[in-house]
Structure formats: structure tokens, C-alpha cells
């Protein structure tokens, strides 16, 4: 899409672009290039000598059991957050889409978690599940399960999943609701006249028509669970106990800032960038396809 009526000049538009281009180059492109560059170097233990090691950092990572373990943790975490988040939000959106009394009130309350920082969401649930004073930990104990996310990896994983899903419900809810409201009412009415009940209408009309929204949200949620959940994990479990909640982003942070293993951290950054680029590419392919409908 282009404008037919434009202004002339060369210097003025560049001047307008300058602030954004400068910030982008200094804080985005240059650091990304640095990450690429450092990923093929290795520093010795004192940071005195740097040698070129080619793809050695990557090879090391791929044979490093703790990195592969972190990959597995990320997959489990990401899949759970995405699936649970989408399922709960879809259920709520379908219920809120039918006009009932008080719908606006429900919606207002349901969008609150969007405004809560991931780290804060983590702390809220951490408090509820605190083994000694948390009210939910108490209830779970009453059911005969000794909840302790400080010693049990599974419990810690469940805790960060719950907090991450909670934070993301509003976002998914709003998009599902927008998607549902874009479905023509006449289709639903026609199906109702033909004798299709609510469940039948959902499975054979509403859900298929909602699939573009669902797909879009899947990509967004995978990206969310890969990167933005850093706050949830850092503020609560700190990747532990052991490595049980160390997702890839968290590992980049600890290897780079705590263990000061620059080459390895840079190589991990590059792998993460590749994952983001892949996900973005998938998303754009799909958006292009949808535009032609």
C-alpha cells in the first residue's frame, strides 16, 4: 500500500526517521551483531585472551546435557502455558460472547491480569503456594499432597505454569472475544433454525471460523512463554530446584551474568534469535495467507 499524494524532499524525511533509526541501530542491531560475533569466540577464565573458535560454542551447547535439559524444560513449560492459557480463555470468551446481564462487569475484571507484571504475577502465586503459610498449599496438603515447590521440581514447574497462564488469560480472552464477535450472527442463527444445539454450533461453526485467531494466539503465546516469563521464574523459583524450571532465556541470563561465560551465553542468544525469527516468519506467512481471503 502506498500513498498517491506525497511530499517532496530527501533530507526532511530522513531527519524524521533519525531518532528511531539511531536508537534501533545502537540498541538493537549493534548488540545483535555483537551476539553473533561473540558466539564464535571463547574467552579464557580470566577474560584476558579471546580466541576464535568457529562453531565450537554451538557444538558444545548441543552436547551439553544441562542445555538440552533446559530445552526440554522450555518445551514442557511452553506447551503447558500455551494450551492451558488458550483453553481457559476460549471457554471464558465463549461464555462472555452470548449477551447476558453483567457481561461488561465480567469483562472489566477479566482484563486485570494484563496490567500485572509477570514478576508480580509470579510473586502473587508464590505467596499462595508458600509451603509454610500459603493458603493454597494448605488446601492441597489437606487433600493429602505435601506441596513444596522449594524441593520438588514438579511442584515448582506447576507453580510457574499457573502464574504464567494467569497473567496471559486477559490477552487471550480479549482476542478470542474479538474473533467471536466478528463471526456473522446470521450463520449461528441459520444453524439454530436447522436444529443445531449450542455444542454442535460451537464445534462445527464457531470453532472452525475462529481458527485464524487461535493460530495467531498460539504463536503469540509461544513467544510469551519463551521470553516474557523470565520475570515469573526469576522472582519465584530462580530456575530451581536444581534445573527444573530453568527455561532457555533464564539460562542465557545465568550463564552470561552470573557464570560470566560470554561465548556460551552469546551462542545461546543466537539460538534464541533464530527461534524468534522462525516464529515471526510463521506468523507472517499465515497473515499474508489470510489477507487473500
Amino acid at each position: 500500500m502506498h500513498k498517491k499524494v506525497t511530499f517532496g524532499g530527501f533530507g526532511f524525511p530522513l531527519l524524521l526517521l533519525l531518532p528511531q533509526l539511531a536508537i534501533t541501530l545502537v540498541f538493537f542491531i549493534w548488540p545483535a551483531a555483537q551476539a553473533l560475533y561473540q558466539s564464535v569466540l571463547r574467552q579464557d577464565a580470566f577474560g584476558l585472551r579471546t580466541t576464535f573458535v568457529g562453531l565450537n560454542n554451538f557444538a558444545r551447547l548441543l552436547s551439553d546435557s544441562s542445555y538440552l535439559g533446559s530445552f526440554k524444560v522450555t518445551m514442557v513449560f511452553s506447551a503447558s502455558v500455551t494450551l492451558a492459557g488458550l483453553a481457559i480463555a476460549l471457554l471464558l470468551a465463549v461464555m462472555a460472547d452470548r449477551t447476558i446481564k453483567g457481561a461488561t462487569g465480567y469483562k472489566t475484571l477479566l482484563i486485570i491480569p494484563y496490567a500485572v507484571a509477570p514478576a508480580v504475577a509470579g510473586v502473587l502465586w508464590y505467596f499462595l503456594f508458600n509451603p509454610s503459610i500459603g493458603i493454597l498449599a494448605y488446601l492441597v496438603r489437606g487433600m493429602g499432597y505435601a506441596w513444596n515447590h522449594q524441593t520438588s521440581g514438579t511442584d515448582a514447574m506447576i507453580l510457574v505454569i499457573i502464574a504464567s497462564v494467569w497473567k496471559q488469560i486477559s490477552y487471550n480472552f480479549l482476542f478470542f472475544l474479538a474473533g467471536l464477535q466478528a463471526i456473522p450472527k446470521s450463520l449461528i442463527e441459520a444453524a439454530a433454525i436447522d436444529g443445531a444445539g449450542p455444542w454442535k454450533r460451537f464445534t462445527s461453526i464457531i470453532f472452525p471460523l475462529l481458527s485464524p485467531t487461535t493460530f495467531f494466539l498460539m504463536v503469540v503465546n509461544v513467544v510469551y512463554s519463551f521470553f516474557e516469563t523470565f520475570g515469573v521464574i526469576h522472582a519465584t523459583t530462580s530456575g530451581g530446584p536444581g534445573q527444573s524450571t530453568t527455561i532457555l532465556v533464564y539460562k542465557v541470563f545465568t550463564d552470561g551474568f552470573v557464570a560470566l561465560n560470554l561465548g556460551s551465553s552469546a551462542a545461546q542468544s543466537v539460538i534464541l534469535m533464530l527461534i524468534v525469527i522462525l516464529l515471526t516468519a510463521i506468523q507472517f506467512r499465515y497473515i499474508e495467507r489470510r489477507v487473500q481471503y
Binding site: 545483535a32 551476539a35 551474568f257
Partner: peptide, 13 residues
């Protein structure tokens, strides 16, 4: 391109 480079992936540099 900045869309593809969230701060989390280029922390150190």
C-alpha cells in the same frame, strides 16, 4: 527487525 529482537535474547551485548 526490532520486532524479532526482544531484549531477552540480546541481554549481554
Amino acid at each position: 527487525a526490532t520486532l524479532m529482537l526482544p531484549v531477552e535474547v540480546r541481554i549481554l551485548p
